[in-house]
Simulated assay, not measured.
Amino acid sequence: MDPMRGQGGIQMLLTAEREARNIVDAARDLKTARLRQARDEAEKEAANYRSQLESEYQKSIVETTGSKDSTAKRLEAETESKIQILKETASKVTADIVSTMLIKHITTVRP
């Protein structure tokens, strides 16, 4: 056997092993990149779906209860109108109370 041929065979094996390792590393890197891409796409899709559900939920809340501003304004207007009605009623009754009840009570002598 030729000693040079043995050395050449070992070198060929080492070279082939390096090439195989490079191919395996490249495949592993490609697989990792694909997994990252799939995870990113899944996260993006989940975020879009979550956003869509949130907007539908907010829309249904607005439809059933109205917006917060309109509800607050409506309640404020109702409160103001009720206060005004109470003030008007009190001003109408005040004269009767003063004239009839208080004056009558003051002028009535008890035995």
Rank of each mutant, 00 (worst) to 15 (best):
A16I: 08
E17C: 13
E17Q: 05
E17M: 13
E17V: 14
R18L: 15
R18H: 08
R18Q: 15
E19N: 12
E19F: 11
E19R: 14
E19Q: 15
A20C: 07
A20P: 01
A20Q: 10
A20L: 14
R21F: 08
R21W: 07
R21D: 12
R21H: 14
R21V: 02
N22I: 09
N22H: 07
N22E: 11
N22W: 05
N22P: 00
I23N: 15
I23T: 04
V24W: 09
V24A: 12
V24L: 14
D25F: 14
D25A: 14
D25Q: 12
D25K: 07
A26R: 09
A26C: 11
A26M: 11
A27K: 13
A27S: 13
A27L: 07
A27P: 02
A27Q: 13
A27Y: 10
A27N: 12
R28W: 12
D29L: 13
D29F: 02
D29E: 10
L30F: 04
L30P: 00
K31A: 15
K31M: 09
K31H: 12
T32D: 06
T32N: 08
A33E: 14
A33F: 03
A33W: 05
R34T: 04
R34D: 03
R34P: 02
R34H: 15
R34G: 02
L35H: 09
L35Q: 13
L35V: 12
L35P: 05
L35F: 05
R36D: 09
R36P: 01
R36Q: 14
R36T: 11
Q37P: 00
Q37K: 12
A38D: 02
A38T: 15
R39W: 03
R39A: 04
D40T: 01
D40C: 01
D40N: 12
D40L: 00
E41P: 01
E41M: 11
E41I: 02
E41T: 04
E41Q: 09
A42R: 03
A42P: 00
E43R: 10
E43N: 15
E43H: 10
K44T: 06
K44E: 01
E45D: 11
E45H: 04
A46P: 01
A46H: 07
A46S: 07
A46K: 11
A46Y: 00
A47Q: 04
A47H: 05
A47L: 05
A47T: 01
A47M: 03
N48M: 02
N48K: 09
N48A: 06
N48D: 13
N48E: 13
N48P: 01
Y49I: 08
Y49G: 06
Y49M: 07
Y49P: 04
R50A: 12
R50T: 06
R50G: 01
R50L: 08
R50F: 05
S51H: 12
S51V: 03
S51R: 09
S51Y: 02
Q52P: 02
Q52K: 13
Q52I: 10
